[in-house]
Design a protein around this nucleic acid. Sequence first.
DNA 1: ACAGCGAAATTGTGATCACATAGCCTGTGC
DNA 2: GCACAGGCTATGTGATCACAATTTCGCTGT
Lengths: 223, 223
Amino acid sequence: MLEQGAGSGPGAPVAAVRGSIRDRVESAVREALLTGRFVPGRAVTLRGLASELGVSPMPVREAVRSLSAGHALEVRPNGRIQVPTMTEARLAEILKARLLLEPELAEMAASYPADLDADALAALDDRVDESLIGGDAETYMRFNHAFHFHIYRASRSEVLLPLVENLWLQFAPFMRTVYGRVGTAALDDHHKEAVQAVRDGDAEALRSAVAADIRCGMELLDR
Amino acid sequence: MLEQGAGSGPGAPVAAVRGSIRDRVESAVREALLTGRFVPGRAVTLRGLASELGVSPMPVREAVRSLSAGHALEVRPNGRIQVPTMTEARLAEILKARLLLEPELAEMAASYPADLDADALAALDDRVDESLIGGDAETYMRFNHAFHFHIYRASRSEVLLPLVENLWLQFAPFMRTVYGRVGTAALDDHHKEAVQAVRDGDAEALRSAVAADIRCGMELLDR
DNA sequence: ACAGCGAAATTGTGATCACATAGCCTGTGC
DNA sequence: GCACAGGCTATGTGATCACAATTTCGCTGT
């Protein structure tokens, strides 16, 4: 379920992955949350994750603790851990926060056209469209995330960006269940406008495109 | 240094030592950061904290991991942990984020006048003024934090509030060093206007007062 | 067949140990 | 006097063990 790349055999440090085992675990869980492989309400156990990833429970404890600090995972009163369930109030707040922060990041990013790299962005959008047609929700979520954060990362933000990353971790699992119900075909994003804004170097247009894209995803939920 | 017993002054609720040792450790460190007892650049070691608090390094590891996830503590490339140092860019972003989120929380809070409790809020502001005159930066920071979050908590926010808490953890240690240099006497907040707005039940006025208060603290830094 | 109870398994928490590495300090040679 | 090398210490990381609380499952009695 969570295997990532090369075999996790002992003695094979897997040069590609960086640093500590804890970081690998955290990356794996983040990826699972962002692509919707972890469904809301799903129980997450330390030993379970540990054995899935072939590591001891120790690094899992720290990774899970780190994620639950940002409400990407939920620690229930009895101590058990699970993927948070969504409520109407929480979703409304997440969308409010997104509309406040993400357009701001987009506007900041417009100051660094080289980092924005319109061609790379357009290529990502193509992959988004492909997966939309294919109806593969997991792939769609991966590339949609990549598209957005390709823009946001260009802002070179140290503060807003981590906040937004947390927000995505919080609503991604829920979105996956929505796509499971209504499918992905009905989605129409505003990525094209964003790409054009990047090509034009129009910061305000980029901000608007991002805001429109977020609102668009929101409307999907009224059904 | 980190004791959180009866010695702590009023206004320092410190979450009444619930449950796990890890939570106690995390609360203690949060409190130390928010009141400026942890100065930027200060080294934080697991064993050091553990012995200070009289616990084993294990719960400290998780508490520190949790805090570093929100950039309240910084894990350096070599693995060492320290209170983050402030940069101009980071500070600018934090203030931008505060101006985006905190007025929003204030406006949301206006929907719950009972929770806002104008009298309690005014009492907190009195304590803020007292400590401003006394020049006790640590007490001032404690009550200023209590004042703001008394308002914010009334919003019953589940998403924005944790984000703002993280922001405060990030800039509080730096503010302490500023107060150490310029003193607290020169501070003029907009708390009175906020209290009045609460009494009037004027959401827009409350939002403006909070925004003005944040901008005010920002101007202090240009010197 | 079903409700109630008790044993067993699961799970998070905390402690202790082992280890590799990065700092730091001291001692030595120039 | 100063630069450098050596060992020594401090520190984070990961593993394993013990334990209490909770859940879960199976058994029993009616």
